[in-house]
Design a protein around this nucleic acid. Structure first.
Lengths: 217, 217
DNA sequence: TAAACTATTGAACATGCGTTCAATGTCAGA
DNA sequence: TCTGACATTGAACGCATGTTCAATAGTTTA
């Protein structure tokens, strides 16, 4: 027995399928079978496959929004607690991972939201003396979110590299440890590369301000 | 006039299409049209769509292998020179990006190869005093490659975050600058998080050696 | 009770796809 | 010139898919 409404059962089955095999490969017939309904009913409730995707997007994004809002309230500032908390909702996480890879609009929305929040939280961390101030806080936020989401999207490959199961506790631990080391000390022994880059930068006059237009080519 | 052989023309058209829209969405008919041949000829040369993918995989992986081998010979040790060099072959880069997102076997192969090479190059860098020695060199290599490839896979989102075009010089510059800052200094002001994690680590006894099996659950 | 509306089904439809295949063209070698 | 192998075409086939639709069951409303 399943006390959820039929519509939400279909949506959850779709989230699961989409997350597992991607939007393209997932078929309405399979989703309907998973939810123990006929294919026709899926279309009755969601209009089309695209409509079904939108409903899933909305639900997952809202769900993550809620848990992020909770973290903001409790005042969590570091990104790894976030990652750990995300693991609680594995189907949604898989869905998000797929959405990122599929290039779904929802993933783009979520990416931008998280960048914005990450930038704000970083500012708080800097004030609190926990985080090192960056010369380009926005760029850094974009990069760190891309790394975090990117690692999520490539979880399968990382797991293989570690020799563990994707989405296992083992994996979270290994990723967390390695990431903390890098994010605490960096990987370069000194700043020779950074200095070199900065000189190139100043010569080419690439500043965030006039970033919108490309003057070469 | 195109002096390449018809077969390689088809393969290059396929690499382009696969890279642009992904393996699933790309159709043999479109690829054939791009290469100015009939759909039948594509199958005549490559047997099936999967065979065509394999041929593309092999070609792209080999191409990247060649340019990486060249970098090893010239003794380049830092990952950003690699990124810059990759930009020269944009279609192949787009293909690789898609392959990573699609979960193609070729992408897995390449990922593992690059991890291995990255680990070796990092060891060289440490010896040379350029790179900081890591406590878990393999884990660090996996993480850094995942970040690098992940950022590549999410190039579209990063570009939007920066307000620039994907695969533009502008974008390379911004990513490089932000990455160098993080990889030179880290983001944490001190090691309090790392220390806390290490204590958790020792308590749970999570070591790389017995990483293969999960004892909980 | 009757009517209207919603949930649900199963079959059918249309389309686009990968693939097959017989036919034709092309060209090197006997 | 004849022949065989290969390149190439275009039409057709079969299949899986998203979608439509009339019909049925169930539930609410007047």
């Amino acid at each position: 027995m399943d006390d959820r409404t039929t519509k939400s059962r279909i949506r959850d089955a779709a989230i699961h399928r989409f997350g597992e095999v991607g939007f393209e490969r997932a078929t309405i017939r399979e989703i309907a079978a998973d939810a123990d309904v006929s294919p026709g009913l899926v279309l009755h409730h969601f209009g089309s496959k695209a409509g079904l995707r939108e409903a899933c997007d909305e639900h997952v994004v809202a769900s993550f929004g809620a848990s992020r809002a909770e973290m903001v309230e409790t005042g969590t500032t570091d990104p790894f607690a976030t990652l750990a908390a995300l693991r609680e909702e594995e189907p949604h996480l898989r869905y998000l991972m797929r959405a990122l890879r599929d290039g779904s609009p929802a993933a783009a929305r979520l990416f931008d939201e998280v960048v914005r929040e990450s930038e704000a939280m970083t500012a708080l961390g800097v004030e609190a003396g926990i985080l090192r101030p960056s010369e380009h806080p926005h760029d850094q936020a974009v990069l760190l979110v891309a790394w975090q989401f990117g690692a999520l999207a490539l979880a399968e490959h990382m797991a293989r590299g570690f020799g563990v199961e994707p989405f296992s506790d083992e994996m979270t631990a290994r990723v967390g440890r390695a990431a903390l080391e890098v994010l605490s000390h960096g990987v370069f022994a000194d700043t020779r590369y950074e200095d070199a880059w900065r000189r190139l930068d100043e010569a080419a006059d690439v500043t965030p301000a006039d970033a919108a237009e490309g003057e070469s080519e």
